[in-house]
């Protein structure tokens, strides 16, 4: 199956994105902000469809809008960001706007499906290169702030007293989540970002109680699920996104109910 260019591209793109999603997702789950990640993905849909309308590549439209929205949510403040109602409203509005943009650009129905549910088998070499650079930037930024971010997530009041600026790190982190979301959309689409960002990270947190262990296990699981999903798609001809979501959910379920989920 590696004889085909599109398969090689798919595996390469999935590897990059899985690593990013696994690492960013670990902190997203730890901070209990998964819903915010979901909302950012929906905002991305508006960005992608909007950019098609004005003739820019959807990837950059996605990145621009998810990062802006992430930073904005951080600036508004932690409390508001965790408010389900506010996020839910933004989320619905973003999808609605995206739909409106599509309405103006009717030729792109197939593209809409790809955006919503992903189409990893159609990723080209140029996109892989873009993902690689984006991924390096994302992981680099995350690495730079990860210690104060962890401190602020575990013990915000003490962190604040010790001089950690909570708003700043919250904003930076959501900006990073925005970048990661934009990358995930290339593989599994706007609606299924959870499969890569949340599933593997949550599974990792059930399987290990260590920060270092989680930060290794989460991207490894994401990678395994993404690659296995693509391989299964190749042999079954069912969509890769379906397989990735199935593996993500299956992994989490197995970790939750199996005795291994109790391992320290």
């Amino acid at each position: 199956m590696l004889d085909y260019d599109f398969m090689r591209n798919a595996f390469a793109a999935a590897a990059i994105v899985a690593a990013v999603a696994g690492l960013v997702g670990y902190f997203l789950v730890l901070r209990g902000q998964t819903f915010a990640g979901h909302a950012l993905a929906h905002v991305g849909f508006t960005g992608a469809t909007g950019s098609v309308l004005i003739g820019i590549s959807p990837l950059w439209g996605l990145v621009a809008l998810t990062v802006t929205a992430g930073l904005g949510m951080g600036a508004i403040g932690e409390r508001l960001v965790q408010r389900d109602v506010a996020i839910g409203i933004v989320l619905a509005l973003a999808l609605g706007l995206g739909l409106l943009f599509l309405h103006f650009y009717t030729a792109y129905a197939a593209q809409a499906t790809a955006l919503l549910f992903g189409n990893v088998l159609s990723v080209d070499a140029a996109t892989v290169r873009a993902l690689l650079w984006l991924g390096l930037v994302t992981v680099g930024l995350l690495a730079a702030i990860s210690r104060p971010l962890l401190f602020a997530s575990l013990q915000p009041e003490l962190a604040e007293a010790k001089g950690v600026r909570l708003r700043l790190y919250s904003g930076l982190f959501l900006g990073i989540v925005g970048l990661a979301v934009a990358e995930c959309v290339q593989i599994v689409g706007v609606l299924l970002v959870f499969a890569l960002m949340v599933g593997p990270a949550a599974t990792a947190q059930r399987l290990t109680t260590r920060v270092a262990g989680g930060l290794v296990l989460s991207p490894v699981l994401a990678l395994a699920e993404a690659w296995a999903g693509i391989a299964l798609a190749f042999y079954t001809d069912w969509p890769a996104s379906f397989w990735i979501t199935a593996l993500s959910a299956g992994g989490y379920l197995a970790a939750t109910i199996s005795p291994a989920g109790r391992v320290r």
Binding site: L30, A143, P148, F151, L154, Q155, L158, A159, V164, R264
Partner: peptide, 26 residues
């Protein structure tokens, strides 16, 4: 804070060490 995390206590405390400085969380 942290009451329902599946993080071990040791790492919960370790997160505070030098926590205000940028860098990796190890």
């Amino acid at each position: 804070t942290g009451a329902n995390l599946r993080l071990r206590g040791r790492d919960f405390v370790a997160g505070v060490v030098n926590g205000h400085r940028p860098g990796l969380p190890f």
